[in-house]
Structures are given as structure tokens and as C-alpha cells.
């Protein structure tokens, strides 16, 4: 049995001008200790996929489909039951370390909170563990930092504190939603390395969300490329990068700034290599959502959503023109 099985997950949000289909039928599974990356331009539904797994969609958000964690159907659980899993078996690290910590509580208190909640630790015992965790995530002068407030820490230090918080109860699954996007380039590599080390050390499964294919390539075993609320290509990292199949994945890859060009500015999802704009999720056209930006598009692409087609072992892409695209490589 897989640790996590997501099937036909759909998320509908209440947008300012009517419903927004943020996630449109996402399926994947993840084994214990396995790592996977979710990559795609900003706004393609990565965060909403992650929040849907935890049952933490924004107010008014509707969820369809199935999320099974250790065989339990999470979408059927009450909030109280989900609370026992959140921060305990499934933990999440968010994108914005500057705002993800409560400004009025000390770091130590915030890291100790899940320990008191899920492990029933006394506040002194939890504080002790929090100190060890802070030390493990590489916080300088960890014990003294327990009493620091978020505003007294740098962005990188805050993200370390948030990672320590997520690790507190030794979860089986860690979801990291763009954990380095808001950080300085020099800090980004350190934080990624820390996450990878911790995942291996503790045998956690990892879902790493990023808009940066380069980050994914260096960090995880499997990759899923998302576009407009769907996974358009998925497979083992080596296989997928060896033979990118979907025209969107190719565009993303072409947009990675090369060594020497630097990855400054974080990219922020600006893709010079893909013409056009991300489609409006509130009013999607029929057929392939990428057709309007795709050099290979034919009238047939606009008729129906393309089904996933095998590219290689465990590697598939949802492209109606897959043969032509692959043939174009010559």
C-alpha cells in the first residue's frame, strides 16, 4: 500500500468573478520514503493541490476526488480527525517565512506547540526538544534562539525554524511549498540541502513544490509537471529529463537560466521560452489548456483533454500530439 494515493483530485475555489478550477483531476501516488517534485508556473495549482491534501483549502474551497493516506480516505474525515494528522503525520513548510510565523510568539513556543499538541509533552519537555530541533536545522546558537521572536531572525533563520516546526513530530510525509522561493540565492541551496538531508535521515516521504525545474532535478526522485490545474507529464527525474515529452515541460526546461546566467530573482515563473500567458482558470477553453501557447497544436488539440500516454517506463505525458512532438527530435 502506498503512503499517499491521490486520485482525480479537483479543487474549485471561490474567485472574485465566480468559481475557479484551481486543480482539475490530479492523480499520483507516493510510497513511504519516496520523494517527488511538483513543478509548474506560478498559479498552476501547486499550492492548492498541497493544501487540499491537508484539508486546508481557503474558505469556500470545494474538494472532489480521493486522497488516501495509509489507506484512510482523508476527504471523508472531520476537521478534528484531520487535526490529529496535520503537523503530526503530515507536515507542511510554506513559501513565505516572513509571514508564516506568528509575530507575537517566541520561536521556541511555536516549535514546541505541535509537540504539546500531538505528543502531550509538558512545555518544559517540548522546549527541550525544540532546542534540539533548532540545533539540527542549523540555527546558530539554537538554545538562545528559543526565546527570540520572528522579527529578530533573518529570512533563512525563520525558514529553518519553520522546518524545525514541521519536523517536530517526525511526520511520514513532508510537503514543502516553494520553501526557498522567498530566500536569497545563497541561502536557497543551504535550505534545500537541509531538507534533502532531513528527508533521508528520517525516511520521510517528500513532496517538493517549486516553479524551478532546476531545483526539482537536483532534489527528488520523481517529477510531476503541472499546467493549469493538471499534471501534464510525470515520471522518474532521470527518465523525464532524459526525454522531455510534453511541449510545456520542454518550454519550462528551456526557461531554466543557465549556469553563469544565474538564477537571480528566483525566476518567479517568467518564461521567456513559452509565448503567451497562463490561461484564466475561471474560463478555460475546451481541449488541451496549453494549446494556445503550443507550437505543435492542431485543431484536434482543442476538441478534448488529451489522456496520459506512455513515453517510457513509468513516464507519461498528456499530449494529443505526443508522437509528432517526440518525432520532431529527429
Amino acid at each position: 500500500m502506498s503512503l499517499l494515493e491521490v486520485n482525480a483530485l479537483r479543487v474549485r475555489l471561490r474567485g472574485p468573478d465566480g468559481p475557479v478550477e484551481a486543480v482539475r483531476g490530479v492523480s499520483f501516488s507516493l510510497d513511504r520514503g519516496q520523494t517527488m517534485g511538483l513543478v509548474g508556473e506560478s498559479g498552476c495549482g501547486k499550492s492548492m493541490t498541497a493544501l487540499a491534501l491537508l484539508g486546508l483549502l481557503p474558505e469556500g474551497g470545494l474538494l472532489h476526488g480521493s486522497v488516501r493516506f495509509e489507506g484512510r480516505e482523508l476527504t471523508q474525515l472531520s476537521d478534528r480527525e484531520l487535526c490529529r494528522l496535520r503537523g503530526n503525520r503530515i507536515a507542511m513548510v510554506f513559501q513565505e517565512p516572513m509571514t508564516a510565523l506568528n509575530p507575537l510568539h517566541s520561536i521556541g513556543r511555536q516549535i514546541a506547540e505541535p509537540l504539546c499538541l500531538h505528543r502531550g509533552l509538558s512545555s518544559e519537555a517540548a522546549r527541550g526538544v525544540a532546542g534540539e530541533l533548532l540545533h539540527r536545522v542549523g540555527m546558530p546558537d539554537a538554545r538562545a534562539r528559543l526565546d527570540a521572536y520572528p522579527h529578530q531572525l533573518s529570512g533563512g533563520q525563520r525558514q529553518r525554524a519553520l522546518i524545525a516546526m514541521a519536523l517536530a513530530c517526525e511526520p511520514d510525509l513532508l510537503i514543502a511549498d516553494e520553501p526557498t522561493t522567498a530566500l536569497d540565492v545563497t541561502i536557497q541551496a543551504q535550505i534545500l540541502e537541509l531538507i534533502v538531508d532531513l528527508v533521508h535521515e528520517r525516511g520521510m516521504a517528500l513532496i517538493l513544490i517549486s516553479h524551478d525545474l532546476g531545483v526539482i532535478a537536483e532534489t527528488v526522485e520523481r517529477v510531476a509537471v503541472m499546467y493549469a490545474g493538471r499534471i501534464v507529464e510525470m515520471g522518474p527525474v532521470a527518465t523525464v529529463f532524459g526525454r522531455l515529452a510534453h511541449p510545456y515541460s520542454r518550454g519550462l526546461f528551456a526557461a531554466i537560466p543557465r549556469i553563469g546566467g544565474g538564477r537571480s530573482g528566483g525566476g518567479r515563473g517568467r518564461l521567456a521560452a513559452i509565448p503567451g500567458r497562463v490561461p484564466d482558470l475561471a474560463a478555460l477553453p475546451t481541449g488541451c489548456a496549453f494549446a494556445d501557447r503550443c507550437g505543435h497544436a492542431q485543431p484536434v488539440c482543442r476538441l478534448a483533454e488529451p489522456p496520459p500516454l506512455a513515453v517510457g517506463p513509468e513516464h507519461w505525458a498528456a499530449c494529443g500530439r505526443l508522437d509528432a512532438v517526440l518525432a520532431s527530435d529527429g
Binding site: D79, L85, G87, N88, T99, L101, N102, P114, L162
Partner: peptide
């Protein structure tokens, strides 16, 4: 609507606890 409220929820705190504590 603040991010740290979502963080608190992701830690496993119920709605009422988040309201009173955070």
C-alpha cells in the same frame, strides 16, 4: 487570513484553538 494562521492550522490546531491562541 494571515499566513501564520494557516501555519497554526497545518500544525494540527483546531479552529477554536487557533482563534484563541494565535
Amino acid at each position: 487570513r494571515e499566513d501564520y494562521v494557516r501555519t497554526a492550522r497545518a500544525k494540527g490546531l483546531g479552529r477554536d484553538r487557533v482563534l484563541w491562541r494565535h
